[in-house]
């Protein structure tokens, strides 16, 4: 089993942290082999940002994505760019706050206004990454929900942990709804 997950958007959306949390859940709490890598430009905010996670039940040789099994796209630009490398039977999750046009794709597609909910429901745009993780894990079962919760516990500083826990739970719920709709 080798699963490749691409988390994409722009700098400052917390995608690298999301990748780290996912990697920690898979590697430390679910006992898989895991590699997290990233591609980023010189700018700390804005610009294209991509975080890659490869999860496997055996030692991982090539650490980067060859062809994604799962793609999260928080921006329209990222969606256009990375869908080309998504497997035909893969999973696409987009933040419909920004992604309004879905390129032709045969696999499973899930759309939800993630950033909008982060602001309206949780009152903080910055937790869009964690909501995304919740949805992504709920719909793909790529790691266990329990592992993801534990990883969040260790990787998120205490003062913002409760907010992020809420965001994660909210993501699980949205994921559940999306499955039921499809």
């Amino acid at each position: 089993m080798r699963k490749e997950i691409c988390l994409s958007g722009s700098g400052g959306q917390g995608l690298i942290l999301a990748g780290i949390i996912l990697a920690e859940a898979a590697g430390i709490h679910d006992g898989f082999e895991v590699v997290q890598t990233q591609s980023y430009g010189p700018e700390a905010r804005g610009g294209a940002s991509r975080s890659e996670v490869v999860i496997s039940d055996e030692k991982i040789d090539y650490p980067k994505i060859i062809k994604s099994d799962i793609l999260l796209a928080l921006t329209q630009k990222a969606c256009y760019k990375y869908i080309e490398n998504l497997k035909e039977d893969g999973i696409l999750l987009v933040d419909s706050t920004d992604v309004t046009k879905i390129p032709p794709f045969k696999g499973r597609v899930y759309q939800h206004p993630i950033t909008e909910d982060a602001i309206k429901v949780l009152g903080n745009q910055l937790v869009a990454n964690i909501i995304s993780l919740g949805i992504l894990v709920q719909i793909s079962e790529i790691v266990s929900k329990e592992a993801l919760k534990q990883a969040l516990q260790t990787r998120i500083p205490e003062r913002i942990r409760d907010l992020n826990k809420k965001a994660l739970e909210y993501g699980f719920q949205i994921g559940e709804n999306l499955i039921n709709i499809t």
Partner: peptide, 9 residues
């Protein structure tokens, strides 16, 4: 840059 920033167990 890959090895420096890559995370693994």
């Amino acid at each position: 840059e890959v090895i420096s920033h890559m995370r693994e167990k």
